Simulated scan of single mutants.
Amino acid sequence: MTSSISFTANLLIDFFVSMGMVLGGSLLGGLGALLFHTPPLSVMVRLSEDLKIWAMVATLGGTMDTLKVLESGFLKRDLVPVGRQITYLAVAFIGCQLGALLIRWLASDSEISWL
């Protein structure tokens, strides 16, 4: 993460990037399924689940920087960077989950279960 952007702005950007990658990839994958006469809704749901981990990794810019900050923070007993990285991970995860939930809601005929 760049230091010129505030912590809150980074959280918001990470949330929308991870959610957008899941939504965009699933919707465009559904469009591709239409072109090949494959059921688009089932393809979209499958893609939304498959893309979650990749969206998190891409949102955080790769896992090595995150792991390096976590390791150095624990070893030096400096827990502020560790807390920030864990918060970035959590927010990216929530964005991915919300994107997948929206795709499942779009693909379903009935109300979606929140559990």
Rank of each mutant, 00 (worst) to 15 (best):
M1D: 12
T2H: 11
T2C: 10
S4T: 07
S4W: 12
I5Q: 00
I5P: 00
S6W: 05
F7P: 05
F7R: 13
T8F: 15
A9F: 05
N10M: 14
L11R: 09
L11G: 11
L12S: 07
D14E: 13
D14P: 05
F15M: 00
S18N: 12
M19P: 02
M19D: 06
G20N: 04
G20H: 10
G20I: 07
V22S: 03
L23I: 08
G24Y: 04
G25V: 02
S26I: 01
L27Q: 07
L27W: 07
L27G: 07
G30P: 09
G30M: 06
L31I: 04
L31S: 05
G32N: 01
A33S: 06
L34S: 14
L34K: 15
L34Q: 15
L34W: 13
L35S: 04
F36A: 07
F36W: 03
H37C: 10
H37P: 00
H37V: 09
T38L: 10
P39A: 00
P39G: 07
P40K: 01
P40T: 03
L41D: 05
L41C: 03
L41P: 03
M44D: 02
R46L: 08
R46Q: 08
L47Q: 13
L47N: 12
L47W: 11
E49F: 15
D50Q: 12
D50P: 01
D50H: 03
L51R: 04
I53E: 04
W54K: 01
M56W: 00
V57D: 03
T59C: 07
T59L: 03
G61V: 05
G61S: 13
G62P: 08
G62V: 00
T63D: 05
D65F: 13
T66W: 04
T66P: 14
T66E: 06
L67S: 02
V69K: 06
L70Y: 01
E71K: 00
E71Y: 01
S72N: 00
S72D: 04
F74Y: 06
F74G: 02
F74R: 05
L75F: 06
L75E: 08
L75W: 06
K76C: 09
R77K: 11
D78S: 13
V80M: 11
V82N: 09
G83M: 15
G83A: 15
Q85C: 13
I86V: 13
I86F: 09
T87M: 15
T87V: 15
T87H: 14
T87A: 15
Y88C: 10
Y88M: 09
Y88N: 04
L89P: 01
L89E: 08
A90T: 12
V91G: 08
V91I: 08
A92Y: 12
A92R: 05
I94M: 10
I94W: 03
G95A: 04
Q97G: 09
L98H: 02
L98D: 01
A100W: 10
A100D: 08
L101T: 15
L101H: 15
L102I: 14
I103W: 06
I103Y: 02
W105G: 12
W105I: 09
W105L: 09
L106S: 08
L106K: 11
L106M: 09
A107M: 13
A107K: 07
S108M: 11
E111G: 12
E111C: 10
S113Y: 02
W114M: 08
W114K: 03
L115M: 12
